[in-house]
Amino acid sequence: MTSAASAIEVRPGTGEGVAVRCRGVTKTYGSGGSAVRALRGIDLDVRAGELLMLVGPSGCGKTTLISVVAGVLDRDGGECEVFGADFEKMGSTERTRYRGKNIGFVFQSFNLIPTLTITENVAVPLLLNGVPRKAALARSREILTQVGLGDRTGEAPQRLSGGQQQRVAISRALVHEPKLIVCDEPTSALDHETGHKVMELLRGVAMGSGRSLIVVTHDNRIFEFADRIAHMDDGRVDRIVTSAKDLYGD
């Protein structure tokens, strides 16, 4: 392991209670001989107010797990509750609305709509949640200013650097103040310095008010930002540690 990772001190969660509770969650892709068991009975709690990192080798089920937790993928078995609500017990529309209100997303490839300005991109969750357009755009400009993009609000996403685009994506994930934010490899498309800044932003702006973050990452250089690190392998969470040192040793 890198020396940077081993030197990291991981802070404990700051909130109280459980944001996400998973018990025996299973998920299999395909069927018959070609079936792939992506999740083989996941038991995991994410505390309110903590930043949990999901780490592990490629194909171990990290993305499948956050997809199930975020309610964008149906699980096959087990239980999974997000702030006490079980997506499996909701209808399609109710689930979509619950997700829209309570969960923010940060994607590896940003997924900003290229034909909208960055302000309009950030405003989408607000519009979806019924905030009038004018107010939504004003609030979006505010949050973009907070992340240091106040002078670029009228620009199209593709005119920004990768780091700037990820800041826009984070703004979009935060703007409607969801209780849970799931981030899929938020720094993988960024250089080390930019990745660090993005994590500082996530840690600084996103945390608080009991909000929880789940960050899927391969990037051990950002482990320092985690409250806890859940290591996955072959569809199972095999270790949960509070320090990268505990994960990889010195």
Binding site: T93, T96, R97, G100, F105, F107, V124, R172
Partner: peptide, 14 residues
């Protein structure tokens, strides 16, 4: 990808 993003963010199928 963007339709998927919108769907994930809470846009209903309708």
């Amino acid at each position: 990808r963007f339709f998927g993003t919108l769907k994930a963010m809470g846009v209903t199928n309708g």
